[in-house]
Design a protein around this nucleic acid. Structure first.
Ligand SMILES: [Mn+2]
Ligand SMILES: [Mn+2]
Ligand SMILES: [Zn+2]
Ligand SMILES: [Zn+2]
Lengths: 148, 148
DNA sequence: ATTATAGTTGAAAATGATTATCATTATCTA
DNA sequence: TAGATAATGATAATCATTTTCAACTATAAT
């Protein structure tokens, strides 16, 4: 529901076509706040769209990631998980990750302080190591309620 | 060179035997500050110890990780990298990761401020999500000098 | 509306890192 | 030194992700 046309435009700009699999995957992602694996998506879509290929899901997720529409998170259990970025700019957040079951929880605490520290650090590191820094991650690892 | 006997003892406590492959792998890790993949290690060891198996390297690295002797870092390129933990306690650091070639650089800037923020956040998250938090990661992603 | 041109799809095979098996060997303890 | 058992390494198996490629389709130009 949130912005099918915006997505469509974003695709056109990049010479990408607006297709059924892409629409369906985006629709699914926009319906949840969970961080889904390619297989999760494949499973959820199966009833509504039995023909869809896992390959296409991987390709679409990679595309969405390239277009900056989804977050891609490695939970350390060997598979990547994806979540749609929110439209509002107040969505900067990081993750709490269960190392046993792979569950990912968003958190948005102390974002202001975090950003200050991140900015300082980023500047220092850019100079010191002549890296081109594009992003940062902060994650807390542990066991979720069920797994501990 | 740094503490072969300490390692040996750490092994014994855990009913683990002190073997040639384990000694050789630890020796290699202690000779560098780089973050190595299992294959890197296999390659480096080959001349000195042609018989060693890649399987054993994986097993040893996993063991060292379980014993808390190495850091295990996922560079996002699909393979894990390992680096020996330093003996001194001033070694708390985080990583700058090149998303193109997987290179990992340690940084230790603003550790004090970082720890304050981390502590606050950890307490808040523990309560709010009833997670048992065991560790945290901070990483900056981008392109290294060679890759950008 | 028809056509031409890329972009897209999905089945199948390939890749590549990591793990599981299992017979053989090495370490440690008594 | 001998027995118990942990460790090794060759091999096969897993498993997520990619690559291939022929068939299909969205889109723009006629
Ligand atoms: Mn998230
Ligand atoms: Mn490090
Ligand atoms: Zn869990
Ligand atoms: Zn690089």
């Amino acid at each position: 529901m949130p912005g099918r046309h915006q997505w469509q435009n974003r695709f056109r700009e990049n010479v990408c076509r607006w297709t059924v699999p892409r629409e369906v995957i985006l629709a699914l992602l926009s319906r949840t706040t969970e961080h889904l694996t390619a297989k999760d998506i494949y499973g959820s879509l199966y009833s509504m769209y039995p023909g869809i290929g896992l390959t296409t899901i991987y390709r679409t997720l990679e595309l969405l990631h390239r277009l900056g529409l989804v977050h891609k998170v490695a939970a350390g259990d060997g598979q990547s998980r994806y979540a749609l970025k929110r439209e509002d700019k107040e969505d900067h957040h990081h993750h709490l990750i269960c190392t046993r079951c792979g569950k990912i929880v968003d958190y948005r605490d102390f974002v202001q302080e975090e950003l200050e520290l991140v900015k300082k650090t980023e500047e220092a590191l850019t100079k010191k190591h002549s890296f081109l820094i594009q992003d940062h991650n902060i994650e807390f690892l542990g066991l979720c309620e069920k797994c501990r």
